[in-house]
Design a protein around this nucleic acid. Structure first.
Lengths: 151, 151
DNA sequence: CTCTGAGTTGAAGGGCACTTCAACTCAGAG
DNA sequence: CTCTGAGTTGAAGTGCCCTTCAACTCAGAG
C-alpha cells in the first residue's frame, strides 16, 4: 500500500460503495488520478473530501450544493485544515436550523399529545411561528414540502 | 360547504396538492367517499389524517410506515384524540434520536472546527460512539447510508 | 504465462414521493 | 342548456442518489 488508494481501498476506508464513488466523480465531487491501465488512484487527501461529502449529506445538503462548496476549495494546493473548517462551519447554520425545527416539532407534538387535541390545526398548523405566510384561506399544514434530505 | 370536502377543499386546507392526495389514496393512507359522479368527498376527519401524514414525514417516517401506523387505527369509529395521541407518541423516540444525532454531528463539527483537524477521521468517524460496529479494517465513515428522509 | 479478483465503461434500473399529461366527465352558475 | 372551472383516470415523467449489469481490461500472486 503506497500513498494512493484504489477505489476498493477508498470504499472500505470511507464506507462508501465504489459505485457511489464513481458517481461522485461523475458529478465532480471527487477526482482521481489514473494508472497506465486506466484504474483510479486516489491521493489520501480524497478521503477528507469523501468524509466531508458524507457529513454534509447528514446535514441535509444536496450533492449539488456540496459540489459547489468543494469547488470553493483552492485547487492549486491540498486543502488545509482551515479550508475544511471554513466549509464545515458554513453548514452550521443549516444544522442549527434543522435541529431547531425538529425540536419545535417535538415540543408541538408533546403539547398536542398533552392536551389531547392532536388536531394539530390549532397547535402546529395555524401557528407554525416561522413559515406559513398566510396565503389563501383556511389552515395550512406546517412545511410546504417534506423535501427529502440526508438525515 | 357541507360536511364533506372536495379534493380541492382538502388540498387548500391541508396545503397538500391534489395530486399528492390522490397518491396518498392509492397508497392507502387516506380514503374518500364518492359522489354519484365519482368525485371524491372527504369527511372532515380526513384532515387529521393528512395532518398526521405531513407531521410524520417531518419526523422522517416513510409513507409506508405511516400507512402501517394509520392501519392501526380503529376503522369502526372515527379516531379519538387519544388514538392520535398514541400514534404521535410512537414517533417521539425517532424524533428524539434524530435530534440527538444531529446535535452530536453539530458538536463533532464544532470540535473539528475548533481543533482544526477536520480530518473527521479521528473525531467523528473512528468514534461515532453509537454506530460503527467495527467491521473490517480501516476507518469507517459515520452512518452507512444517508437515507433520504423528511427533514 | 495463467489465473483470479478487482477495476473499467455506458446504459439501464430502482426506490421514494410526487407531478404532469392527455383525454376525458362533473357540478353548478347564469 | 351552455359554459367553465374543478374533478377523474392511467401512464409516463421528474429529481435525487445511487446500484446493477454486461462486457470487457488490469494487476499481481504463483
Amino acid at each position: 500500500m503506497q500513498d494512493s488508494l484504489t477505489i476498493g481501498d477508498l470504499s472500505v476506508r470511507s464506507g462508501v460503495a465504489p459505485s457511489a464513488l464513481r458517481y461522485y466523480e461523475r458529478l465532480g465531487l471527487i477526482r482521481a488520478d489514473r494508472t497506465g491501465g486506466n484504474q483510479r488512484r486516489y491521493p489520501r487527501a480524497e478521503l477528507r473530501r469523501v468524509a466531508f461529502i458524507r457529513i454534509s449529506q447528514q446535514v441535509g445538503v444536496s450533492l449539488d450544493e456540496i459540489r459547489a462548496a468543494l469547488d470553493s476549495l483552492p485547487d492549486s494546493r491540498t486543502p488545509s485544515p482551515q479550508d475544511w473548517a471554513r466549509l464545515s462551519a458554513s453548514w452550521r447554520g443549516r444544522l442549527d436550523e434543522k435541529i431547531r425545527l425538529l425540536a419545535k416539532l417535538r415540543d408541538d407534538l408533546d403539547g398536542c399529545i398533552g392536551c389531547g387535541c392532536l388536531s394539530l390545526q390549532r397547535c402546529t398548523l395555524n401557528n407554525p411561528g416561522d413559515a406559513l405566510a398566510g396565503e389563501g384561506p383556511g389552515a395550512r399544514l406546517m412545511l410546504p414540502r417534506p423535501s427529502p434530505d440526508g438525515e
